[in-house]
Amino acid sequence: MSQPVIDLTRGALSARRRITNQLALGAIGLALVIAVIPLGLVVYSVIAKGSGVMSGEFLTADISLSQRRAGGGMGPAIVGTLLITGMAALMAIPLGVLGAIYLNEYGKQKPLARLIRMLADIMTGVPSIVMGLFIYTIWVLTFEARTGFAGALALACLMLPVVIRSTEEMLKLVPDELRQASLALGARKWRTTVTVVLPAAVSGITSGALLAIARAAGETAPIVFVVGAVNNPNWNLFDGESTALPAQIFSNASLPFQVSQDRAWGAALTLIAIVLIFTIVARIIANRFAIKER
């Protein structure tokens, strides 16, 4: 019996490839739609339920002393979120970037570098409540005070491993030819890293830092444990208790009163807006300092 003849002509292969390509594109598009639908529903729900309480007074007024009554705002929580998250970013991002530079540019596969990578991977999966308990034990109990700085320490511990691993991956994507060209021109390794490698990877580094900030800004457990609760703004991170939007979302959403739940939705919308503003500003800064292709 004769064997079937397989058409290996250029036209048959081209048609098969087009069909395969269309099927792959269709599968990718379907996966994108499936991923976007729940995200869109979450954003829609927050905007629909939180926009009703949004106003200038809500963003600036002090937190209401009575959870059953309407009124009050999230001014102290917004101030606390910005201060605590900003302090955490100031501590975690520079340390994370420097750590990633050591891992990728100097440490490579040395035992110390491998150990740091392993610890960073482990810390990435540690629940936020563990970080809260850790800071509560070594800071709050030691100094017998809940402060905004304690919350910043907890959030910085959560941000640090994310910044390290994301920055290292971005540095790996920088072509070695850029490093070799700079070294061939007589630049030292540190100068090559600062003037060539980092600008080439600044967009990716910014994305990783934003991911870490977004995760830290929405954490509730560390804030509840170590920050405390106040009804008035506290601009001093090192003295007195403070509060933040995640803590207010948690406390108001846990109550059965409709006005409290409305405040929780409003606080959630405010938190999303803050993260969005930070993202836009960071993108602008990253595009400003990134190396442009000519």
Results as ranks from 00 to 15, higher is better:
residue 197 V to N: 12
residue 198 L to C: 02
residue 47 I to G: 03
residue 79 V to I: 10
residue 140 V to Y: 07
residue 185 L to I: 13
residue 157 C to N: 03
residue 243 T to P: 10
residue 225 F to R: 02
residue 151 G to I: 13
residue 123 M to T: 10
residue 179 R to H: 13
residue 73 G to Y: 02
residue 163 V to Q: 01
residue 79 V to C: 01
residue 42 V to L: 09
residue 119 L to W: 07
residue 151 G to W: 15
residue 238 F to Y: 10
residue 159 M to S: 07
residue 63 I to H: 10
residue 174 V to C: 12
residue 42 V to I: 12
residue 129 I to A: 06
residue 243 T to H: 11
residue 204 G to E: 01
residue 151 G to C: 12
residue 149 F to E: 02
residue 188 R to C: 11
residue 161 P to Q: 04
residue 120 A to P: 00
residue 43 V to H: 11
residue 183 L to M: 15
residue 253 A to M: 15
residue 184 A to N: 14
residue 212 A to E: 05
residue 109 Q to D: 13
residue 103 L to I: 02
residue 11 G to R: 14
residue 196 V to S: 06
residue 252 N to T: 05
residue 240 G to S: 14
residue 292 K to H: 09
residue 15 A to L: 15
residue 66 S to F: 04
residue 77 A to I: 07
residue 151 G to Q: 08
residue 136 Y to S: 09
residue 79 V to E: 06
residue 138 I to H: 07
residue 106 Y to M: 05
residue 232 N to V: 12
residue 208 G to W: 00
residue 168 E to W: 10
residue 171 L to C: 04
residue 112 L to K: 12
residue 41 L to W: 10
residue 92 A to K: 01
residue 273 A to G: 12
residue 155 L to C: 11
residue 128 S to N: 06
residue 194 V to P: 02
residue 180 Q to H: 15
residue 72 G to M: 09
residue 249 I to S: 13
residue 57 E to M: 11
residue 99 G to Y: 00
residue 188 R to Q: 12
residue 30 L to S: 04
residue 128 S to C: 10
residue 160 L to M: 04
residue 147 T to R: 09
residue 79 V to W: 05
residue 156 A to D: 02
residue 142 T to N: 14
residue 175 P to V: 04
residue 109 Q to Y: 08
residue 80 G to P: 03
residue 144 E to F: 14
residue 202 V to Y: 02
residue 286 A to M: 00
residue 208 G to Q: 00
residue 91 M to T: 04
residue 91 M to G: 05
residue 275 V to Q: 01
residue 81 T to K: 12
residue 84 I to L: 12
residue 251 S to P: 02
residue 51 S to N: 04
residue 229 A to V: 10
residue 123 M to H: 10
residue 221 A to T: 08
residue 284 I to D: 11
residue 73 G to T: 06
residue 60 T to I: 05
residue 33 V to F: 03
residue 226 V to Q: 04
residue 289 F to R: 06
residue 190 W to R: 12
residue 281 V to F: 05
residue 147 T to V: 11
residue 137 T to L: 06
residue 43 V to I: 13
